[in-house]
Structures are given as C-alpha cells and as structure tokens.
C-alpha cells in the first residue's frame, strides 16, 4: 500500500472532530468571556475610568482571572469544552503564559518558570510586535501620520 492510499484509508477510519458541537460551544463560551469583559468595562467606567484606562483594566483583570483559574486547575477543564472560545480571548493568552510557568516550576525558577513562561505565548508577542514595527515603518515611509 502506498502513502496516498493509506492516507485516504486513515481519513476514512479516523473520526472527525464534532464540529456541530465544538463551534456552538466555542461561540457561547467565548461570547460569555467577552460579555464578562463588557461588564467589567462598564464597571470601571462607572467608577470613573476613561474608556482607554477602563479597557486596559479589563485586560488586566481578565489576565488575572485566567491565571488564577489556570492555577486552580480549572481553566483546562473549561477549555476542553470551550476550544477556541477559551483560546482566542486574552484569557487564552494568559493561560498560555501561566500554564508553562506552573508546569516547569520543577525545573527551578530561572530555567523553569522564567525561561519556559513564553514557550507557547512567546510567538504571539514576537509576531505581534514585528507586525506593529512593519506598520510603523509604513506610516513613517508614506507619512501617514
């Protein structure tokens, strides 16, 4: 049997993800996280923060909650159902930072926690920052400011 034939056979036998469940679950759980964000946003603005500060505080709060839920071993259990619903919001980023930090504590605080903290989320910062630099250069070169 050649590789193509085997690949076809494997696809036939392998069960696909239950997208008819996964997508609605991701929608609802992700939507709820954003609704919580909106609630916090309104709360901070009610307490007198301007929109920009309130928005920053929302991010910080969600990052804290996500890290806490990660430490309490709850985030992965929600994510099992949430899928992209817990991945795409900023809480997913915080989970990707906190999880390796906790996991690699056994290798010490320098080579474990410190060095491994960004094994997953590091790429997000690297490519986000690079994209912003490219955009900045475009602004400078074409004098868009």
């Amino acid at each position: 049997m050649d590789k193509q034939e085997y690949s076809k056979l494997t696809d036939k036998v392998s069960q696909n993800s239950k997208s008819y469940l996964n997508i609605p679950k991701a929608f609802v759980i992700g939507g709820l996280i954003c609704t919580l964000g909106q609630l916090l946003l309104n709360l901070y603005m009610y307490w007198g923060a301007d929109k920009e500060l309130a928005s920053t505080l929302v991010s910080v709060t969600l990052v804290f909650l996500s890290a806490l839920f990660t430490g309490l071993d709850l985030y992965d259990n929600i994510a099992k159902h949430g899928g992209a619903g817990t991945l795409v919001p900023i809480t997913g980023f915080a989970n990707a930072v906190a999880a390796p930090a906790i996991e690699f504590k056994t290798e010490g605080f320098i080579l474990g926690v410190g060095a491994k903290m960004f094994t997953i989320a590091g790429s997000v910062i690297v490519y986000g920052t690079l994209a912003s630099v490219v955009y900045g250069l475009i602004i400078v070169i074409f004098k868009l400011y």
């Binding site: 696909n16 993800s17 997208s19 996964n22 997508i23 609605p24 679950k25 991701a26 929608f27 609802v28 759980i29 992700g30 939507g31 996280i33 954003c34 609704t35 964000g37 949430g82 899928g83 992209a84 619903g85 991945l87 795409v88 919001p89 997913g92 980023f93 990707a96 997953i120 989320a121 790429s123 997000v124």
Partner: peptide
C-alpha cells in the same frame, strides 16, 4: 466575541492549525 471564537474553532477543526499558530 462569540463570532471571533467560532471562527477560531472552525480553524482548529478543519485546518489542523495548532493553537499557537491560531493565536
């Protein structure tokens, strides 16, 4: 917000992109 996440789930289920790549 839900819509953004639903699109992410479509990417997970149908493209085999890893979570890090999606982020």
């Amino acid at each position: 917000g839900g819509l953004f996440c639903a699109v992410g789930q479509v990417l997970i289920d149908y493209t085999k992109l890893t979570p890090a790549r999606i982020l």
